[in-house]
Design a protein around this nucleic acid. Structure first.
Lengths: 96, 96
DNA sequence: TCAATTATTGCACATTTGCGCAAATGTGAC
DNA sequence: GTCACATTTGCGCAAATGTGCAATAATTGA
């Protein structure tokens, strides 16, 4: 694992390591179809602008995928990649 | 997953989500025996006090276990628990 | 065109964070 | 006790972060 990769992984974990962002991720876990921001807003104690910013961070770090659909933006989890990264780290830490 | 658990998980991820701390964790991954702080210092670009603080954060979040041995403190990874948490999250995000 | 809906951005603010340096603390060796 | 070594803590500082409010897009529908 080189420096860049480590930095990237740290970025992913940091993105996940904030309560409201992790709440958003958990919320997205359970839904099949992508959700828009208004909908995701409801699981958070913060206002829409905050949610927008958090989703932006999550998108930048590759946690979620966003797609503009008309006047709304829908978000979905980048499931495979995120899970893969987490499992790789788990394996590195503790090889069963 | 209730609020406290989510907060705890966020704390764990946040602890891991900082470059130098993640470097420390990676460093600990490869060693069988616990390492002391001076030794861990060498894998970081920061000074001893910074390493001490990072290790304290990691210990508080349950990432590492510390043990005072004479004048030095040795650290080891809390492998099972950390890996378990990461895998649980991975599974939640993407059930294979 | 105009109003409504959804999302984002600018700004300000308080808080947190990571860091180095120096001092303090704890501990073993002599 | 005195010294050396390992670690932690206090302090200050700059940078980053999370947040709300208001203003500004962007887009749809009447």
């Amino acid at each position: 694992m080189n420096e860049q990769e480590l930095e990237k992984l740290a970025g992913l974990l940091k993105a996940l390591g904030e309560y409201n962002r992790l709440s958003l991720v958990y919320n997205l876990c359970d839904c099949q179809a992508p959700k828009n921001a208004m909908c995701l807003c409801e699981c958070c104690s913060i206002d829409a602008s905050g949610v927008s910013r958090h989703l932006k961070v999550l998108a930048q770090e590759g946690v979620v995928l966003s797609e503009r659909k008309g006047r709304e933006t829908t978000y979905s989890l980048n499931r495979k990649e995120v899970a893969e990264n987490l499992r790789a780290l788990a394996d590195k830490i503790d090889i069963d």
